[in-house]
């Protein structure tokens, strides 16, 4: 049962119960909807991008604790970040969530405190392969929003 506690770390349940950045932005210039049609998790990411920096983010939706906590943490992690940094962070996160990424401990070393710790709490999900896509969903949706922003 040890792995259950690894999956449902207190910090994940805290983000699930009290999600951060959970609002519809009054002003935004990028956004996307993401869903896992097989399980029904849904995430909406709205962004305000100014001078190449994500100055505001809203993450809404509904789904399991992992998808919603991941979205909440993601919002904290990418806010006030330049887009190239966000891309690096996204790659790092996805790398961490893949089996091969197990050895990479370094998530955003420049940002001290809660954010790094919070995101790393999701590593426990790797032991539950069917749930990895739940953790990835907000990040995939963020990538899609940025893709739409950059192409249009």
């Amino acid at each position: 049962m040890a792995s259950l506690e690894e999956l449902y770390r207190e910090v994940i349940l805290d983000h699930y119960r009290s999600p951060r950045n959970r609002r519809v932005l009054e002003r935004s210039n990028a956004g996307a909807d993401g869903s896992n049609p097989l399980c029904g998790d849904e995430v909406r990411v709205d962004l305000l991008i100014e001078a190449g920096v994500i100055t505001d983010i809203g993450v809404t939706g509904h789904g399991c604790s992992i998808s919603q906590a991941s979205g909440s943490m993601m919002g904290d992690a990418v806010k006030a970040k330049a887009l190239d940094e966000v891309c690096r962070l996204t790659d790092r996160f996805k790398g961490m969530m893949s089996i091969e990424g197990a050895a990479d401990p370094g998530l955003d070393p420049e940002r001290p405190g809660a954010v790094l710790g919070d995101l790393e709490a999701l590593q426990g999900v790797r032991k539950f392969p069917v749930r990895i896509k739940c953790a990835d969903l907000p990040w995939t949706t963020l990538e899609e929003a940025l893709g739409i922003y950059e192409s249009g």
């Binding site: 049962m1 789904g63 604790s65």
Partner: peptide
């Protein structure tokens, strides 16, 4: 307060197989 997928994962750890979703 507990999403169906979370319930299913926890039940599985106890040997109980159920379906979760739509």
């Amino acid at each position: 307060g507990i999403h169906a997928h979370d319930i299913a994962t926890i039940l599985d750890q106890h040997g109980v197989a159920v379906r979760a979703g739509h």
